[in-house]
Design a protein around this nucleic acid. Structure first.
Lengths: 195, 195
DNA sequence: AAATATACTGACTAGTTAGTAAGTGGTCAA
DNA sequence: TTGACCACTTACTAACTAGTCAGTATATTT
């Protein structure tokens, strides 16, 4: 792993645990056993760092989407999406939507646009999943797939806040109900459970 | 309005627009035409300020709850709750749950506990509304009232992030669908619309 | 009239912040 | 072997940070 990547990784972690304005170049440098100037070498300004963190997160999501496309079962695909958030809840992190949304007005226009792209891509992906799932009878919901995608995304994002504030046990409660609301029980192709 | 109240009001506004770690005592003092030491006179430490902001917000919510109790129509009561968030969306603010959730790990234990109390009170109030509404046939939902309250609260909180990132038009879309999901259409006591 | 409390200001400090500029050691290609 | 590039370090600055302390003007009480 290159120094640049380590800075991005740690920067994202700090952004999603303490907030973008709660850590400094010194914190990054110290944790990575570098001088602050080395961090400036890779990211001249803090906003450039924010931009790269968001952009890297977009790439991570693209990779997730590519991997998820291999899963033919749409309910399982939804579960893969939920699992991303569930992992964050376990480590007390909020998602980048939540973190960047809170710090939004401290970013440059360029960085805000990158945040917008990230969120749009997530919503578009989720809406497509919901549309397809509804068409083939695995999901049920009212309203447009896009609005439903917004409802689910907002549930997931703020559930991470709730998990921090009220306790980790809140996340699975919210996530399980969300999935129940959406999924039409499927006839198992495996042996049926005894009644 | 006393200086103390003005500091609290501005502090909360800055916390909910830029984040708690993005403003300083100097910013507060400058905007209120005071010296930073005057702010320290009212709130010795920044964490004490955070604590008072949250605590004041709890009182505001208690006042809301008291006022809302006068409304016998439970659907209207839900609308009153949603309207709080809709006003924030209009002014690009996130709610205190969202803001305090993001900055959570930069607060003292005492302040975190106050955040916890605020969120718990909101959830308890909302769960009671849902329970009552379900019992008298105006709301419909699966799962426990508390879990449903969590789903609604997370929708509301993160919708404010979405309104910032993707545009204000997102908020009413999300809120309207949320209300539609929940509310059983009531027979109007007024003259029925022509079909 | 004297003492006390309130709500500040002025002047300060020690530490932190993002950001710069000049230099250094290593690698690699021509 | 020279020169260019990379990934830094050292040394620095100017501005800002939370927080302190010793005053001071103005009421209010005794």
């Amino acid at each position: 792993m290159t120094t640049r990547d380590e800075i991005l990784r740690l920067g994202e972690e700090l952004m999603r645990t303490q907030g973008f304005n709660a850590f400094s170049y010194y914190h990054l440098a110290d944790a990575l056993k570098l001088r602050p100037a080395a961090v400036h070498y890779h990211f001249p300004t803090k906003d450039a760092l924010a931009l790269s963190i968001i952009s890297r997160s977009r790439e991570t999501f693209h990779a997730f989407a590519e991997h998820a496309a291999l899963e033919p079962d749409l309910q399982k695909r939804l579960h893969q999406f939920v699992r991303i958030f569930s992992e964050n809840a376990a480590t007390d992190k909020i998602c980048l939507m939540g973190a960047a949304g809170a710090d939004f007005y401290t970013f440059s226009d360029e960085t805000r646009t990158e945040v917008q792209l990230l969120v749009r891509e997530i919503i578009v992906w989720l809406a497509a999943l919901l549309r397809e799932g509804k068409a083939c009878g695995v999901f049920t919901f009212d309203g447009t797939p896009r609005t439903r995608a917004m409802l689910i995304a907002t549930n997931m994002a703020a559930s991470l806040h709730m998990a921090r504030i009220l306790g980790k046990q809140e996340f699975p409660r919210i996530a399980d109900q969300l999935v129940k609301d959406l999924c039409i029980p499927q006839k198992s192709t495996a042996k049926r459970k005894e009644k």
